[in-house]
């Protein structure tokens, strides 16, 4: 197993492109190292991106935030401006693992690990986050929800890596929230999850919404129908009921050790409803 720690994204891309066998990117390592220890065939090449300066910071850009792919969750959690602008995204990332894991785990790693139950992904999708991809050619930007194509699979091509994730500038009176269901209180994985991001007008009527569901399909589900159930409402009970039903209808879970299909379908709606109420209040809406 060859280990490389390049200083630029370009160099990292070159290494990845030139790799003969399998190649893995090491950011926080909270997935990769665990997989290696549990018997995964070691990759031929490991590219550590923590020494790439451009990928190690949080920068303000055009009123939004650009978060480097090697930024640990704990650093995001301590960035006050980011937490104020995108509390749902920061909270979602803050749910990954334990306090110790938070010191290492990265949001981009969570995204590229492509787990259907990844906590940060529904929040990113709801936020309209954009991933910047570095590779052999020109950098390109794609929506965060387009990275994972299925469990453990991404749309990244050989030689490509996520360099940063961009959270855009928000209109006034916007709020986001993320909730997951776990049978315990900590140290667990979502049986269902929901990220909601919405914007209100001066009267508290929802004018824009993005709704994403996690762990209830092979990849994150961005539901325009569910979002539509919120737009034009003040999140009255009747609207929320319709919204929860729309979310449940959008969910396509499977029966597994983490719960039955019926359970996850129902709870996806419950969580989305609860997250919508939090997002609404964060946007300044009065319940």
């Amino acid at each position: 197993m060859r280990y490389e720690a390049p200083a630029t994204a370009k160099a990292a891309a070159k290494l990845l492109l030139g790799a003969k066998g399998s190649a893995k990117i090491l950011a926080g390592g909270t997935d990769l190292l665990v997989q290696l220890r549990s018997g995964m065939k070691p990759p031929g090449l490991v590219v550590d991106i923590k020494h790439i300066a451009a990928m190690s910071g949080i920068k303000k850009e055009r009123g939004g935030f650009r978060i480097g792919a090697a930024v640990p969750s704990a650093v995001m959690g301590e960035n006050k401006g980011l937490g104020k602008a995108w509390p749902g995204v920061v909270e979602a990332t803050g749910l990954i693992g334990s306090t110790q894991i938070q010191g290492r785990a990265t949001m981009a790693g969570n995204l590229c690990n492509a787990s259907p139950a990844a906590d940060s992904v529904p929040a990113l999708a709801a936020a309209g986050a954009v991933a910047r991809i570095a590779g052999p050619g020109k950098r390109r930007d794609i929506p965060a929800e387009k990275i994972a194509t299925g469990p453990g699979k991404t749309s990244l091509k050989k030689g490509e890596l996520v360099e940063s994730i961009f959270l855009p500038k928000r209109p006034p009176r916007s709020g986001d929230a993320y909730l997951r269901f776990i049978p315990r209180t900590e140290m667990d994985i979502a049986a269902a999850s929901a990220g909601v991001n919405l914007t209100l007008d001066r009267k508290g009527v929802c004018t824009a919404a993005r709704v994403a569901l996690g762990a209830v399909g092979p990849r994150v589900i961005l539901s325009a129908k569910a979002a539509k159930a919120l737009i034009g409402t003040r999140l009255e009970d009747s609207a929320l009921e319709g919204f929860a039903a729309a979310c449940s209808a959008a969910a396509t879970p499977i029966d597994d050790k983490r719960g039955t299909k019926e359970f996850k379908t129902h709870v996806a709606g419950v969580l989305a409803r609860r997250a919508a109420v939090i997002a609404y209040e964060r946007a300044g809406g009065k319940p």
């Binding site: 315990r184 209180t185 900590e186 140290m187 994985i189 597994d256 050790k257 983490r258």
Partner: peptide, 24 residues
């Protein structure tokens, strides 16, 4: 203990075999 149709244990780890954590 959750067994699949194939008779294999599906949750041989502390992630999906859920003992209470302190905050529970």
């Amino acid at each position: 203990y959750i067994y699949g149709e194939d008779g294999r244990l599906q949750n041989p780890g502390f992630l999906d075999y859920r003992i209470p954590v302190a905050s529970d």
